[in-house]
């Protein structure tokens, strides 16, 4: 009996497992594919919204081209990869006559409003090729002027292209504010939720 089971029944069961495998792949062959065909379709915004891409500056409430940044250097000094470089603005140049006038006024005991250097940075350059996206800069920014962008489509053919001028980027963003968002394909997440509901319905 054992011999029959071992030499006749077992091989048939084994061969059947091969047929079952073919059935699985055959089933998927007939189904629609699940990949998103990139240039024709792009993944839905809900998926890119949670993605932490390179950092970007947050505009101040008043002017969308000027960041909230106060050039305090917390980001640049705390960055473990040294990929942020911030340049403070210099105080505006004052003509000697003006200077003299103020000095005289001060000597008279009047209060003089000397022009201070604007707080927002003159230059904010960021090297994406070094960044490890750890978020130290974002967590340490005292005025929350930094955030992760959701840019997943960044492409470069040269390392230098990855060094970004974030101020210029902010200006571009302000300009493009009027543009409308791109059309999105139905999301994989939606499909997942749908399939999950189906599965749970089946179980019930």
């Amino acid at each position: 009996m054992n011999a029959i089971r071992k030499n006749v029944i077992q091989p048939i069961i084994d061969l059947w497992s091969l047929i079952v495998g073919l059935k699985v792949t055959g089933k998927y062959f007939c189904q629609r594919h699940v990949t998103v065909h990139y240039p024709r379709k792009i993944i839905p915004a809900e998926l890119t919204d949670t993605f932490a891409g390179h950092i970007e500056l947050i505009p101040s409430a008043k002017d969308p081209t000027i960041p909230k940044c106060i050039s305090c250097m917390m980001c640049a000094t705390n960055c473990p990869s040294n990929c942020i470089k911030v340049l403070k603005q210099k105080a505006p140049k004052v003509s000697p006559e003006q200077e003299k006038e103020w000095a005289e006024a001060e000597a008279r005991g009047e209060k003089v409003k000397r022009p201070k250097a604007p707080k927002n940075p003159a230059k904010f350059s960021y090297d994406y090729s070094l960044c490890s996206l750890c978020g130290t800069c974002i967590e340490n920014c005292p005025v929350s002027s930094l955030r992760f962008s959701h840019d997943i489509y960044i492409v470069a053919t040269d390392r230098k292209e990855l060094t970004m001028d974030l101020l210029a980027r902010l200006a571009r963003q302000a300009e493009a504010q009027a543009g409308k968002p791109a059309d999105r394909a139905p999301g994989v997440l939606e499909q997942a939720a749908e399939a999950g509901q189906e599965a749970s319905a089946k179980e019930a």
Partner: peptide, 13 residues
Amino acid sequence: KYAGHIQRRPGPF
């Protein structure tokens, strides 16, 4: 193409 469709992707396109 067959491989692609079995693996739920389009294959060469």
